[in-house]
């Protein structure tokens, strides 16, 4: 049961972290220059609207009371009204979250599938010219600004070759009966392709390098030598025993990468006009739509923290030394 307990402790720790981030967020938006009401109230709101918001968020109260009102509102999912859209921030965020998650997960799945295979292959080719040529290329992909890679892909495959659309999630004037119909349409997928590849090319470096170095370590282990002494096939030695062990930390890093990728999304979504949380954050900040910016930031933070927890959980499930302690 100590496993359950340690997981509980970790959950509590991360809940505390979330609380701290929420507090930082509160301070960040209250301490910014200008009117303290500006965090929630746009001058163009009607008098009644302003009145209602002042009451809901206690904006006429001292800062510490505002803070508790803010926490209480958060717990009920109340994030205020967007200045630009005149709709509740929460509605806007739930609308955009799926787009961001689809982009994030599809790109990471591609990145990990490629990275794991290529990493294992490079470990196998250790000391060859292939490896010497591949490693700097991989490091260079990690050194690329993601948005620049997006620009290059966009210029080549959209503007020059015309193979893919330049931005958005679907062509103008198209509509679908359901979200499922939209997400499975070739229209949506062709819009997804370039931003997905941009993020995938950037992200494959981590699983690749991790897989490679793990493989190099694992292949020195005694049980690999034993597998050879047993006369097992190269497949069994390298894949069943080598890769299976090397994969453990790589799979854990997936969750961390999700959290990390959300941050990269901010720029790539902007390049491809992909209506997701990251682009929304940038636009909201640029347009001084503070409630929306705050909400988008918070949502990203929640996912980042949740993924840290998931990483711990994944590790304890995938490694029998922990799951069968």
């Amino acid at each position: 049961m100590s496993k359950f307990k340690s997981f509980l402790i970790r959950t509590l720790q991360l809940a505390l972290v979330l609380w701290a981030v929420v507090t930082i967020l509160f301070l960040m938006f209250r301490l910014m220059p200008g009117n303290p009401l500006a965090a929630y109230i746009d001058p163009t709101f009607t008098a009644e609207q302003q009145e209602a918001l002042i009451r809901q968020f206690g904006l006429d109260q001292p800062l510490w009371r505002q803070y508790f009102t803010y926490l209480a509102n958060l717990l009920q999912g109340e994030l205020g009204y967007s200045f630009r859209y005149r709709t509740p921030v929460a509605d806007r965020i739930w609308l955009l979250l799926p787009n961001t998650l689809i982009l994030t997960f599809s790109s990471l799945i591609v990145a990990y599938a490629f990275g794991i295979l290529a990493g294992a292959w490079l470990a196998w080719r250790r000391g060859t010219r292939t490896e010497a040529a591949a490693l700097p290329v991989v490091l260079a992909t990690r050194a690329m600004p993601e948005f620049w890679l997006g620009m290059v892909l966009l210029a080549i495959f959209s503007f020059s070759l015309g193979w893919f659309p330049a931005g958005g999630t679907r062509s103008a004037g198209t509509s679908y009966d359901s979200l499922w119909a939209l997400y499975t349409s070739s229209n949506f997928l062709s819009h997804l392709f370039l931003p997905m590849m941009t993020l995938a090319i950037y992200s494959q470096g981590l699983p690749l390098l991790l897989m490679r170095s793990n493989m190099l370590d694992v292949m020195k282990e005694d049980f690999i030598t034993m597998a050879k002494i047993k006369g097992l096939s190269p497949f069994a030695v390298v894949i069943r025993h080598g890769a299976r062990n090397a994969l453990l930390p790589v799979m854990t890093s997936f969750a961390i990468s999700v959290g990390y990728q959300l941050q990269g999304n901010v720029v790539v979504e902007s390049v491809f006009s992909w209506p997701g949380l990251g682009r929304e954050l940038v636009n909201a900040v640029a347009a001084s739509d503070y409630p929306l910016a705050q909400g988008a930031f918070l949502m990203i933070a929640v996912v980042v923290i949740a993924m840290n927890l998931l990483a711990d959980l994944l590790y304890s499930i995938l490694d029998p030394r922990i799951s069968h302690a």
Binding site: V17, A20, I24, L281
Partner: peptide
Amino acid sequence: ADVAFGIPFLPFVIVI
């Protein structure tokens, strides 16, 4: 440090 790990890096820098 845990808190710093919980803060989404790029969004934080953007807002600041």
